[in-house]
Design a protein around this nucleic acid. Structure first.
Lengths: 111, 111
DNA sequence: AATATCAATCGTATATTTGCGATAAACAAT
DNA sequence: ATTGTTTATCGCAAATATACGATTGATATT
């Protein structure tokens, strides 16, 4: 019994779902906003800004990194996290395509 | 030990995260596209189109309904599902605000 | 009234997510 | 070399998510 039948859906749908999943936690959105807000890239200052433990924040960062939405460059003992602009443009395109597709449904047949 | 510390984040962040969570499964995105594609609203035809059981599809529909993204009107023995255009506009606004905020980070200080 | 159809819900199994403390790994500075 | 700082990872506990079959409830149809 598989947890998620991702194989049964087309690649673009799965890709969008994965991007949405990366955004599906308040902490991760907060992290992204922090990274955008501060001009300089942040490492562990993120931990100080969030109401979560260091290990938990590290996990969220890992997920964002796996989704390709941020990068993490090692800088001595610290790690500098930044938004990955390229991946963000891809994500934006995915979401906007979805919104456009859904907007074409303005016929209002029944509901 | 709480599952998610949603209380610790501001309302808009949680709202966006919840919308993203509704989109975080391929089946739910497929359902939304189906509803947009077909001019007429679909009830259980969705089940026929998806590689999932009736009960599983019903659960996904419930989640989309709880997120306010679709409506379900009872029509005799059937149920007619439709996109909720108003909520979709709200969702679109949330996501586009995020994208705009993140785009302001083009300083490229380190990464 | 009996039957058939459709969709929601229940019960259950399994996988994943979230969260934290503790530990480990990497590096800097003494 | 030792120590301190920073971050990733491990191990665990609890909550959720996904999926399905079986059942229930509602409505048509006969």
């Amino acid at each position: 019994m598989a947890y998620t039948k991702k194989e049964a859906f087309d690649v673009d749908t799965v890709a969008l779902a994965n991007l949405a999943k990366a955004l599906s936690h308040p902490a991760r959105i907060a992290i992204l906003r922090l990274l955008a807000q501060r001009q300089s890239c942040i490492c562990g200052d993120i931990v100080a800004e969030l109401p979560l433990s260091q290990s938990t924040v590290s996990q969220h960062l890992k997920e964002l990194k796996q989704a390709g939405l941020i990068t993490g460059d090692i800088d001595g003992p610290r790690v500098c996290y930044c938004l990955n602009v390229k991946q963000w443009q891809i994500a934006r395109t995915y979401f906007e395509k979805l919104f456009t597709d859904l907007n074409s449904c303005t016929s209002q047949n029944c509901c």
